[in-house]
Design a protein around this nucleic acid. Sequence first.
RNA 1: GGCUCCGUAGCUCAGGUGGCAGAGCGGCGGCUUGUUAAGCCGAAGGUCGCAGGUUCGAUCCCUGCCGGAGCCGCCA
Length: 468
Amino acid sequence: MAMDWLKIREALAAPVGTAFCVKGWVRTRRDSKADGGLSFIALGDGTCFDSLQVVARRELANYESEVLRLTAGCAVEAEGSLVASAGKGQAVELAATELRVLGWVENPDSYPVSAKRHSFEYLREVAHLRARTNTFGAVARVRHCLSVAIHEFFDRHDFYYIHTPIITASDCEGAGEMFRVSTLDLLDLPRTADGQVDFDKDFFGREAHLTVSGQLNVETYCLALSRVYTFGPTFRAENSNTSRHLSEFWMIEPEIAFADLDADIELAEDFLKSILDVLLTRRADDMAFFDQRVDPGVVSRLRGIVDKPFRRISYTEAVDELGKAKRDFEFAVEWGADLQSEHERYLCEERFDQPVVVTDYPKEIKAFYMRLNDDHRTVAAMDVLVPRVGEIIGGSQREERLAVLEQRIREAGLPEKDYWWYLDLRRYGTVPHAGFGLGFERLVQFCTGMANIRDVIPFPRAPRQAEF
RNA sequence: GGCUCCGUAGCUCAGGUGGCAGAGCGGCGGCUUGUUAAGCCGAAGGUCGCAGGUUCGAUCCCUGCCGGAGCCGCCA
């Protein structure tokens, strides 16, 4: 075919009169007997939210035999020229001079993604086809946009992208249950003399798991390259059944040297604002859809976050605020206990109605590597809470003092010898440093207003859910 | 891991205290229309998640299993 192939995003922006061809999947088809007979085909190729209206007239050789048989999901290639639309609803449309069917839908009556509204629960069961719906197409483009914006932000601020391992032999921060990685034959396990499983015979010669965090590894590069980050898959074998948890998710973990908790919070705030701003600018089409159909008000909510400083509050102050709240909580609030979901939501949704950064938590409820404050009761930790999703970022200044860190590892009951290389960092040129972890899917949830985290990742993995 | 709820046509759902099932949308046929959540008419489409049990009789009651959802906990 001699004609240029334009993506639908390009076609919609082309000048009237341009001749080109497009390729995509039929969203809907409507027929009219006016003007001697013609059909309107909404064609989408995923390059933008909108579809292109292709007008196919009876004069086409295959009008009766093929055009009139098109249904949602058929793959077609159409060529013609762009004309000002004679109808309402779109500025331009493609007046087709030829239309070829590339792939039919075998059983239109049972095509899983027919031209009607489907529940997200149902679409999860046909995850291989749900990308063809406007919602999941929009989610995919938003994910991409945010990913790119994240890398751009870090690149602009002199951060290096470090690829930390997926398979790990250390139980890092004890961040949760881990998935075992093994090549041993489960039906015939090698045993040691005392009857234990002999992991010396396993692939790595020791127990290995999928990573629950790249933080400990990335700290090593932080203390050499100053500003680094990871952005990769993370695995938690927790039996979590909520709309905010996945067994496999993506996490962004920046780590900055010569920095304290304040610098860490500042980074988190700049970072979030920057990528939200990029999203609102570059994906205005998809965001308008989420604002209209999924979560009325998301766009202005995100806009407000970009424009306003975050609210900062210490854990101790947060406990006071919760104590003063004129409402009942299922769980009592007392100093020393971790904040419950209801408490976090009260703070960022009701009390302040904006992102809230809670700092300086009791050391007992936080990880061993977080820097002990001078009061010896709290650590330099921070959580960023946002409406609806709750904790979207968790971070801290790291304990850089060798003796204190060793003490904290002992208190946590962790095997000190497993952390020899992590402790080495405190022996050789230690320096104050800090970082945080951002759950990518929670970010996408927050940005789109999608209620369930399983609907913002292409193929969700959760307890009893690993199809596709 | 705890608590709660759900599983009826391709999809979304209705089916008062048991008597062999309905609607809307989709798909199909027709009419109308430069249409766009199109409109009107018509026909088709269901072993009421699976397996047992109670009963003269079960979509409806009981038990188990399978699948799904929500909230809480764990956290990102």
